[in-house]
């Protein structure tokens, strides 16, 4: 009976994560019920997989960090971006980024607390680099990943300008884009919820 129960226990334990599975294994080994964890005999490397070449990493490493790491060569401004927006974005986001039907991108008053219920770029997005990263990887919705880097710089400039964050002639490139000040950044705090009986 005890043996049966222990077997059931082992079964449940094995359903938990690998780490908790390996916890307390000595007891179970001494009961003769399970093999010792194979982690003890793991080689330094299994040798599965192959080294990634710099070229193949570069081909898919498209992310942009807030400090600008990852931004490509090229540049753009809002004037050029406006035309691209009209042709490729306005059908979903409206003529001026306000009308929809999909996500609103532009908000008039970027400082109003109330307006943050509308999550547009000017009043809610904390980093300008995110606009470039997201537009390049996922937009336009019907043709994702089809824009050139120059087009993305221009569109980013147009959207930041439409939100009143940069001048219409401001040239955005790998150096200037991370420097754009975003009003919502100061509101961002990391998760402050915690375990236990606190409602947050």
């Amino acid at each position: 009976m005890i043996k049966k129960l222990s077997v059931i226990t082992v079964l449940f334990v094995s359903l938990a994560s690998y780490r908790s599975y390996t916890d307390g294994w000595q007891e179970r080994v001494s009961e003769g019920l399970v093999a010792k964890p194979d982690t003890l005999e793991w080689p330094k490397s299994f040798g599965f997989g192959r080294p990634a070449t710099e070229k193949e990493i570069a081909a898919i490493d498209i992310d942009i960090r807030p400090d600008g790491k990852g931004l490509p060569a090229g540049q753009g401004n809002a004037v050029t971006g406006k035309a691209i927006y009209a042709a490729k974005c306005s059908a979903c986001h409206g003529a001026t980024g306000i009308e929809g039907p999909n996500d609103r991108l532009v908000v008039g008053d970027t400082s109003s607390v109330k307006s943050r219920r509308v999550k547009a770029i000017g009043n809610y997005w904390p980093y300008a680099t995110t606009v470039f990263d997201y537009v390049r990887r996922a937009m336009p919705f019907n043709e994702p990943g089809s824009l050139t880097d120059e087009e993305v710089y221009s569109l980013t400039a147009y959207l930041l300008h439409a939100n009143g964050l940069i001048d219409s002639k401001k040239v955005l490139n790998a150096k200037t884009l991370p420097q754009v000040d975003m009003p919502a950044k100061k509101y961002y705090v990391p998760d402050d919820r915690e375990d236990g009986p606190v409602i947050r």
Binding site: P66, R116, K119, Y124, Y127, T130, Y134, Y187, P190
Partner: peptide, 26 residues
């Protein structure tokens, strides 16, 4: 450092009170 992607800034964050946007609430 985190990358501050669209899904962890403009989405999947929540306003808490008038002056706080909670981020990385995993």
């Amino acid at each position: 450092q985190p990358y501050m992607t669209r899904e962890e800034t403009s989405k999947y964050t929540e306003s808490v009170g008038p002056a706080k946007i909670r981020q990385f609430s995993f």
